[in-house]
Design a protein around this nucleic acid. Structure first.
Lengths: 339, 339
DNA sequence: TGACATTATGACACCGGTGTCAGGAATTTA
DNA sequence: TAAATTCCTGACACCGGTGTCATAATGTCA
């Protein structure tokens, strides 16, 4: 036998029609038990596998989800952000658990991605993963909505459709960081990240942080803030510039762990002790966080649950079920960098 | 317009036959330039996308590669090994670069995975990623070979087909570790990993290590070896048991970084200073390695190149081109844990 | 025994493209 | 002007399944 076996081959050997083979293999009750068994045996012997293209074409569905990864174009090209990598892993796992395959693809935010996968019938739905940037995305979200494409996204919000978003309670996470500093009497706070609303996640984290400080009558000085994107390098340079400007603080909240790790490097270089002189809190709880020196206190985003929720919610949308808005509770993981 | 647009819809609006639409969209030179343009415009307006299921079915290829991730069943279920995660990232990137999609799926080594993806025409080829275990895999490799399935694998070797394997020169890497210890006059060496040939990669690393020591008239004492799988926990416990048995050494080669990190934790707990009392060298150079305390000296496997090679070699196989056996050179990254 | 329900099967259209072949129109050559 | 060539297009079979419908065979009940 050359080439792949088809259901016609099985039909031939089993002495039945191709229709019957198809039914038998899908365990239709319309098929005689004995026939079914014969068909199964032959299928096994011929190493037959249903051609997914043919079956998907006919049934108009694919048992596949597509994951579109948007990268921060300004970050180092060679390494994927470990947080996204962890999400990638947990989404892969969640899909496997649900019996779906996962089609992974990198996208740049500007490209014409909005339709490809679901429109070309390669996937039943799409998961969007990246740092949310409202400005670019909304028109594309609208295109997706118009076409009735099923999708969910991490982080970024979609106008009037909170059910399409799964994200961490960034605002609440920021508050946790502030509470932590206040509990440790560290009230001279610095913030490193992006406090503009260009980066909605960082913005929310900062807002929560600021508001909680404010609720405790602590104000954050604008000079003690520096912009950074989510890389170690960027955190390092932002912190260096604060130090270079002779700005003092005894607590530092970084909008992500990578930033925090870079910040700690800069502080060490300047002979500033962590946590004695400056307590540092990050955000994400990436795997590295517990191994750095000192181990990093951080606000955890549970990637395992996040991945599961994205997949579950998307499957609900595909099945036409109602989906709740999903805000994941952040948890403060206390380690040595802040005490 | 409800539902997705098909080429017939375009044909209708453009006043041409569906055949012509299909040709026009694929830039066949057989189509009049003006017609082509009209078709393109209408396609764009209708947000038309070629149905991949239909086109794959007809052409019998999919522009998709499948990645099968085999997990060490004994490792912690919740976290993916960071080395594999890095590979996943780089393979995703490499696929994107080549214009292929990537279908990712977790597999358990024992399952009936050997055919599913390529046989069901979902992918043109398969990348196998996991810790090589000859015993289980070889019969499955044979099935794949019989069926003329295109595949490449990381690590594990396939009988008589070196071209199907991409892996790091584990033996050479082990030698590098030994050279390093000798250069630093640390000749009382311990090894943690699996020195049996059950785990071929660890075995090769150990062989290289042992042979190079031997070449310098240093013997490794069998009592100074402990088994471990590639997790931090396992490395920790293995090292603890050595310490508990009062075994002394001033250098430790761990078969992977996770093991090394666990080992360092055990050493620290026993008040053994790294690197003063014991120099530690790991293997992989995972992202965490540079952040642990002390930063870990390790033998790097370049995951970016590895991912690229896997994808490139697989594409060559698919195109029927000749493939060379691919051994990636390991590089020693010297950090503080060993000096 | 005839009417009717049940079970098991085959024939066939269909999903949405791609590739082959035939042929008309326009252009060139004899 | 007829023949040959080139260019462009439509008709149609085909990829390998799935779902519907018709029907033969068997069993059930009055």
């Amino acid at each position: 036998m050359k080439g792949k076996a088809t259901s016609f081959d099985i039909a031939h050997y089993a002495g039945v029609s191709q229709s019957t083979v198809s039914r038998a293999l899908r365990n239709s009750h319309l098929v005689n038990e004995e026939t079914r068994k014969r068909v199964f045996d032959i299928a096994k012997k011929l190493n037959y596998k249903v051609d997914k293209n043919a079956s998907n074409l006919r049934t108009q569905q694919s048992s596949t989800l597509a994951l579109l990864l948007f990268e921060d174009p300004t970050s180092d090209e060679s390494q994927i952000n470990p947080f996204f990598l962890a999400m990638l892993g947990s989404i892969t796992r969640a899909c496997a658990k649900e019996g779906y395959d996962l089609l992974v693809s990198f996208q740049s935010a500007s490209a014409d991605w909005q339709a490809d996968y679901e429109d070309s019938h390669r996937a039943d739905g799409i998961i969007l993963l990246g740092y949310g940037d409202y400005i670019d995305y909304q028109p594309k979200f609208n295109t997706l909505l118009e076409q009735n494409t099923k999708f969910v996204c991490w982080g970024a919000t979609v106008d009037n459709r909170p059910d399409l978003t799964v994200c961490c309670d960034n605002y609440g996470g920021g508050k946790l960081a502030a509470e932590h500093f206040i509990a440790h009497s560290r009230t001279d706070c610095a913030f490193i990240g992006d406090a503009s609303d260009h980066s909605p996640e960082f913005f929310s984290r900062f807002q929560g942080f600021k508001d909680e400080l404010w609720a405790n009558n602590v104000k954050i000085n604008e000079r003690k803030m520096a912009n950074a994107i989510s890389t170690e390098e960027s955190g390092y340079h932002a912190t260096r510039s604060l130090i270079a400007n002779n700005i003092k603080f005894n607590a530092l909240f970084a909008a992500s762990d990578l930033i925090a790790i870079g910040a700690i490097r800069a502080l060490k270089e300047a002979n500033i002790n962590v946590p004695k002189d400056v307590a540092v809190v990050g955000f994400d709880n990436i795997a590295i966080a517990s191994y750095v020196n000192p181990p990093l206190t951080t606000i955890e985003q549970n990637t395992t649950i996040a991945g599961q929720m994205l997949v579950e919610n998307l499957l609900k949308l595909i099945r036409g079920e109602e989906v709740q808005s999903t805000l994941l509770p952040p948890v403060l993981i206390s380690r040595k960098s802040s005490s």
